[in-house]
């Protein structure tokens, strides 16, 4: 089977600085893949390149639906990338703070809905149905992620862990087949991290999404991932399953001083 995400020789320069240096990466259908590396290694830049926020200097990015049709991501605007089935969360939470939890998820549904301005003003039956549908769908999504009790709260008033989960709910509402998680466990306590671990496993089982995540919590990475890519200074220094990565001397060297024996 073709990989859902196939990145070849991705390179990104900022001025004279090479943030990503010929990175290759694949995510196969149903896989959970982790992208790890020390701070400033270029992980978030990688996400920003493949989601169209930055335009990479060089390289090919190919997204393939599980049904088989592929599209090149190069040059696509971020919203087009999302429409094609790849959604993301942000490392520094970027919720719509002054909107309610439900509305945040409803925004995620935006690109799967059709009604335009005339529909909004005249509200024909099709439009009413769609609006009712989006409210129901969004609520169900919140139930699935375990946020239903916050439905009418402002996003900014949620506890930290719940905000991270809301980011995931919002991304899932766009109906992705590949979900990118940027440090989903950052700032979470052990209990919340454990719940997140379960949630990610459950999402893959129930919704069949493939997942690519950036994470610093090695315990979470090792327990979740099928495969791991390690980057340092914008270069890929290792790839393999958790066992291989743990014993890889290059990785240990890059992380020297950081604790990876989880």
């Amino acid at each position: 089977m073709k990989p859902v995400l196939d990145v070849n020789q991705l390179t990104m320069d900022f001025g004279g600085l090479r943030a990503l240096d010929h990175i290759d990466l694949q995510v196969k259908p149903g896989e959970i893949v982790a992208l790890i590396g020390p701070n400033g290694a270029g992980k978030t830049t990688f996400f920003n390149c493949i989601t169209g926020i930055y335009s990479p200097t060089k390289g090919d990015m190919l997204l393939t639906r599980p049904e088989g049709d592929s599209s090149r991501l190069n040059g696509l605007k971020p919203n087009r990338v999302t429409e094609r089935g790849m959604a993301r969360t942000f490392q520094n939470i970027r919720l719509f703070q002054n909107m309610t939890v439900l509305e945040n998820v409803m925004i995620g549904r935006h690109c799967r809905l059709r009604s335009g301005i005339p529909g909004a003003i005249l509200r024909p039956p099709a439009n009413r149905r769609e609006e009712k549908q989006v409210v129901d769908d969004s609520y169900r999504m919140l139930e699935k992620i375990g946020l239903a009790r916050y439905v009418n709260e402002f996003a900014k008033n949620l506890p930290y862990g719940a905000q991270r989960r809301l980011e995931i709910a919002r991304a899932l509402a766009t109906e992705p087949f590949l979900l990118l998680l940027d440090e989903p466990a950052a700032g979470m306590n052990a209990q919340e991290t454990k719940e997140l671990d379960d949630l990610i496993i459950r999402l893959r089982a129930e919704m069949g999404v493939s997942i690519l995540l950036i994470e610093h919590d090695m315990k979470l990475v090792m327990s979740l991932s099928d495969r791991i890519y390690v980057v340092d200074y914008g270069k890929k220094i290792a790839e393999g399953n958790p066992e291989e990565i743990k014993s890889n001397p290059a990785v240990i060297k890059a992380y020297l001083g950081e604790d990876i024996d989880a």
Binding site: G15, T44, N48, I53, Y54, F90
Partner: peptide, 8 residues
């Protein structure tokens, strides 16, 4: 000016 990309 340097063209600035939004910090994400």
């Amino acid at each position: 000016g340097r063209s600035d990309t939004d910090k994400v």
